[in-house]
Design a protein around this nucleic acid. Structure first.
Lengths: 210, 210
DNA sequence: ATGAATTACGATTAGCGTAAAGATC
DNA sequence: GATCTTTACGCTAATCGTAATTCAT
């Protein structure tokens, strides 16, 4: 039979851990490059290299192999990185999650919308949204489809709800909310057109000929 | 249709995040008590309370409700804590894992063992272990089962491998490695005992009567 | 009066940035 | 010479600990 008292004697040395160092380590390992990591971290290379050295000293373990081309993880560093990366991911999620919660607790959302979109969709959508998030306010700008797209592109609104067909460029994204069709309503003079089919582009000619 | 340029305007403010603060937060949230957290963190209450205040300021969000009885998480803090706790767990795993790896790369394991355990199990186990971890050395102490248990309790060896029945106390753990039974070998004088069954406790009497 | 958080203050130290130095292609 | 990492050095800012304060049981 085997019996033991808990942890092996070597493991007793308590680690002088600073989680902030793990964040630095994460980026260095991720990019394999001090310079790049420093840029992303908005700090200087010397600062990063010192932190890594301190970390290695505290952990009592070489984490990187240095070379001309950059920083390569040692086998131990590799394993360590797996866990650190997972931890960082959780922290990032914590941050973005909190950020989302806060932005929904108060603040203003800027929207550009066509009149059609406003009446057919947006009013109703805002109403139900505000039931859940009563402290979020909307700033509505009534614009044409074309104008709406432009001010989204300029960053002056958070998004736009439009009703006419359009084409968007690279960074923008679109989502179809619903399809609709126009209904032509006319007086007796147009009665004979009832039931006929024609292209909407031809509409002016047809109406003119009546 | 809805189109947007990426992120909402409120989210642009970059968080001034310091992972070390999350570690502090974790313990405060876990214990709901600054004093306790400070003790565990080997620091002072003022230090902890300041860190939490800084964190809340940086996140722009109240994480705790303070009261006479301690620190209670706000709803936002609650959600935040879930993620932070998960992240911390990963970091802790990273640390303990690395620590294990390092202790297996070099070092000495102290073992107490009975002679039986040594020959029947330990020699062979050490041999195959050292194939994988050639730089780990063993220090073997040959002791009785009783003595072995005592020096495990005293922390003078990492574990013991024993062969006689025993009882262990609170902090110690045991694991059965294999079962075995003794075989009695006697001369012609004991031939008539062959095939008979009797309790080993009664052995002295039986042997004496032959 | 005990046990909690907070504030104040002085001291320490850990971290930062600039600049320079190695190292390697 | 270009592109890395590392060292040196002076400084700033973040953190710390002690002690005092506040508040509620």
């Amino acid at each position: 039979m085997l019996l033991h008292s808990g942890s092996l004697r070597k493991g007793n040395k308590t680690m002088n851990t600073n989680f902030e160092h793990y964040r630095i380590f994460y980026y260095v390992a991720k990019y394999g490059n001090l310079t790049k990591a420093a840029t992303v971290l908005h700090t200087s290379q010397p600062s990063v290299t010192r932190t890594i050295h301190n970390l290695e000293k505290n952990l009592n373990c070489r984490l990187f192999e240095r070379s001309k081309v950059g920083m390569k993880l040692t086998p131990e560093g590799e394993v360590f990185y797996e866990y650190i990366a997972a931890g960082c991911a959780q922290f990032f999620k914590a941050e973005s999650n909190l950020s989302d919660m806060l932005s929904l607790e108060n603040g203003t959302i800027y929207v550009s919308a066509t009149e059609t979109a406003l009446h057919c969709y947006l009013f109703q959508a805002m109403e139900s949204f505000n039931e859940q998030y009563p402290n979020v306010h909307f700033k509505i700008l009534n614009n044409s489809t074309r104008k709406s797209i432009n001010i989204v592109k300029e960053g002056n609104v958070d998004f736009a709800v439009v009703s006419a067909p359009f084409q968007i460029e690279k960074p923008l994204q679109q989502k179809v909310l619903r399809k609709y069709h126009d209904i032509l309503i006319g007086g007796k003079r147009f009665e004979k057109l009832k039931g006929q089919k024609f292209l909407s582009s031809n509409l002016p000619n047809i109406l003119g000929s009546v």
